[in-house]
């Protein structure tokens, strides 16, 4: 995918143009101040150059109005830029509710991607155009960062956490995917490409090859095989709480705390069950730490999520 040299990266997501506008605004402000101050300095150096060694210029100790002016004006410029950046950040943070979920696991030194339909890929991410995509990401080892310059977005991929990012691609094509957080020897080869396709091509691509089971189906299979189902039954009355309708709802813990059952909570409950015992249950669940992979965990989580969607 060799590209020609350019001074400006491609624009391929809904964020790209907005970020670029912000960028040009900042460039304009910077050029203005740099040119103005440098010009003044050069002017002073020439105009007030020392002409004889016994010059003793009159001291000027300062001026309050000037100090106020050059504190307050930059302050307001800063606040303006802050507001623009924060507002945009807000939008970059919150994925639309109808976004398509895709799951990413980083490891030294590759990206593993799973689509809910079951399709998997390595170092590539295929997405449909004009559709919000939400990536849920974690790492098997060290911190990585999923970066797509053409979309002007990136996010760290942290072991033990689920970080999410979202974007909506606006241009069919292939774009660079980089690992942006230093992660060891082959950091610079932990790269790949993001392929943006027309909706129909994407559907064909998803359906092609051995698609096999979807993530929910795989999660259900693991749920049976790992023995989760022996305690967590679909109706209450099992030795563990039922998981139907749990996702996204508040849970009363034995410690008295109330937490919302999000992805991180479910992950923690599988890996370190004793860290959050649900009120009314015994701490009898075995730990699964070290026994299941990050991908299996994600499948289990999608399955548990699907139990709530079905319940609604």
């Amino acid at each position: 995918m060799s590209k020609d040299f350019s001074l400006h990266p491609e624009l391929a997501s809904t964020f790209a143009l907005q970020i670029d506008l912000l960028y040009f605004l900042l460039v304009a402000i910077s050029v203005f101040f740099t040119v103005a101050i440098v010009a003044v300095i050069i002017f002073f150096v020439i105009k007030y150059r020392r002409k004889s060694d016994d010059e003793r210029p009159k001291p000027i100790h300062g001026s309050l109005p000037l100090e106020l002016a050059w504190s307050i004006i930059p302050f307001f410029i800063c606040m303006g830029v802050f507001t623009l950046g924060a507002d945009m950040f807000f939008r970059m943070y919150r994925a639309p509710a109808d976004a398509l979920n895709v799951y990413v696991v980083g490891k030294q030194w590759m990206w593993k991607v799973q689509h809910p339909e079951g399709k998997r890929e390595i170092n590539e991410l295929h997405v449909p155009i004009n559709t919000p995509i939400r990536l849920t990401m974690t790492s098997e080892d060290v911190i990585h960062a999923f970066s797509i310059p053409a979309f002007r977005t990136k996010r760290d991929v942290v072991p033990g956490r689920y970080n999410t990012m979202w974007f909506e691609a606006t241009k069919v094509g292939e774009y660079d995917l980089f690992c942006a957080e230093y992660c060891g020897t082959q950091h610079s080869t932990m790269i790949g490409r993001v392929v943006v396709m027309e909706e129909q091509d994407y559907q064909n691509w998803l359906g092609g090859g051995a698609a096999g089971e979807s993530m929910v189906e795989a999660g259900m299979r693991h749920f049976e095989q790992l023995g989760c189902a022996t305690c967590h039954k679909s109706q209450s009355g099992g030795r563990g709480p039922t998981l139907t309708g749990v996702y996204g709802e508040p849970v009363q813990l034995a410690s008295g705390e109330v937490v919302v059952a999000d992805e991180a909570y479910i992950r923690e409950s599988i890996l370190r069950p004793t860290s959050s015992i649900v009120n009314g249950y015994q701490p009898i669940m075995p730990t699964f730490q070290g026994q299941i992979s990050e991908e299996t965990l994600l499948q289990l989580i999608t399955y548990i999520k699907s139990l709530s969607e079905a319940a609604k």
């Binding site: 964020f15 900042l26 740099t34 800063c78 830029v81 802050f82 950046g85 970059m92 996010r155």
Partner: peptide, 27 residues
């Protein structure tokens, strides 16, 4: 120093701008 620090400081404000930093961070 003044010229270069000026550029350094001004580009620091690019990085302080939340949305902008998402693109620029670790580059």
């Amino acid at each position: 120093f003044i010229g270069l620090f000026l550029i350094g400081g001004l580009t620091g404000t690019f990085l302080s701008t939340l949305a902008m930093d998402i693109h620029l961070h670790d580059t």
